[in-house]
């Protein structure tokens, strides 16, 4: 039973993390290559707080604020520039994050922070919290898709110049998506810190950023259900198959690139197309 709980907890944290990137990349069409840095900010924030005996439930919102604040800063600096600039900045951010954390004694340096206290929720309670938060953000994402915000995001992802011509303040919307997405990544980070009761600089690097991007692309950029499914499967794959764990970056990059090449709309797109074909045949 303990093993299943661990598996499910890992899955829900990954689902939340992937959905947080989906809010940025899927909804608004902005590529982030350093999303793990924001999870890292949340994780370290929560880790330090929990080491100081602060409750997890208090640490979570603080982690969100810290990660979102960094998101605001990074977004503000890069979103006014052209499309692909964010990809480069975020990649810089993730390397910078790892580099800085390594040097800081109060962040545990190379060894990280371990021995984080178990929360008062217990294992099952914590699992339920993770599932609830992932479900909450999934629900929020679906709601946004139905709202005018989702409508505007669609247009920005489609063509920024046209969006401007119809009166949309593109930079403001992109910044909004980026801050929401990075804050949610911070929440996922806080959960991560509690789950493993350890955070280290290697847990939030470029590899993790590519892995989460692979989850979003495989699931189908912008598709909430597709991304949830892909994140759930891909997050436990390394735990179930040793080979995937050993060659994580290789497997995930291969997945990322073959998906982009052969099915850019991901699993969600494949499912939609076959559904349409079945419908077309039966009618």
């Amino acid at each position: 039973m303990a093993y299943e709980i661990t598996l499910l907890t890992t899955m829900s944290i990954s689902v939340l993390f992937a959905l947080s990137l989906n809010f940025i990349t899927g909804f608004c069409g902005q590529i982030s290559l350093g999303h793990a840095a924001f999870m890292g900010v949340g994780a370290y924030t929560a880790a330090i707080m929990m080491k100081a005996s602060v409750s997890l439930l208090v640490a979570i919102p603080v982690a969100a604020v810290f990660a979102g604040a960094l998101g605001l800063l990074v977004g503000f600096a890069s979103l006014r520039v052209r499309h692909d600039f964010l990809a480069i900045t975020t990649m810089g951010v993730v390397f910078l994050f790892v580099g800085v954390v390594r040097q800081q004694e109060f962040l545990g340096g190379e060894v990280g922070i371990s021995g984080i206290q178990r929360s008062e929720l217990g294992r099952t309670g914590f699992l339920l919290l993770c599932i609830s938060l992932a479900a909450l953000f999934a629900g929020f994402s679906l709601l946004v898709k139905r709202s005018w915000l989702g409508f505007v995001f669609d247009s920005i992802a489609d063509n920024e110049d046209v969006s401007r011509v119809i009166g949309i303040d593109v930079a403001k919307y992109k910044l909004f998506a980026f801050v929401v997405g990075t804050a949610a990544a911070g929440v996922a980070g806080a959960l991560y810190a509690q789950h493993f009761r350890y955070v280290g600089p290697d847990s939030f690097g470029f590899v993790e950023s590519i892995s989460v991007l692979a989850m979003v692309v495989v699931g189908g950029i912008g598709s909430v259900w597709g991304v949830m499914f892909a994140a759930a499967v891909l997050s436990v794959l390394p735990l179930l198959i040793q080979f995937v764990d050993d060659y994580k970056i290789l497997v995930y990059s291969a997945l990322l690139f073959s998906m982009m090449r052969f099915a850019p709309d991901g699993l969600a797109g494949i499912v939609n197309r076959s559904m349409n074909r079945i419908k077309g045949r039966s009618s």
Partner: peptide
């Protein structure tokens, strides 16, 4: 320059909603 990912109707409907698209908090 149409928005290629949405229908002709939605292309125009989005432009009709300037009051709702003024900022993300309204939208």
């Amino acid at each position: 320059q149409p928005l290629r990912g949405m229908t002709v109707l939605n292309n125009v409907a989005l432009a009709c909603g300037t009051a709702k698209t003024a900022n993300p908090f309204k939208a």
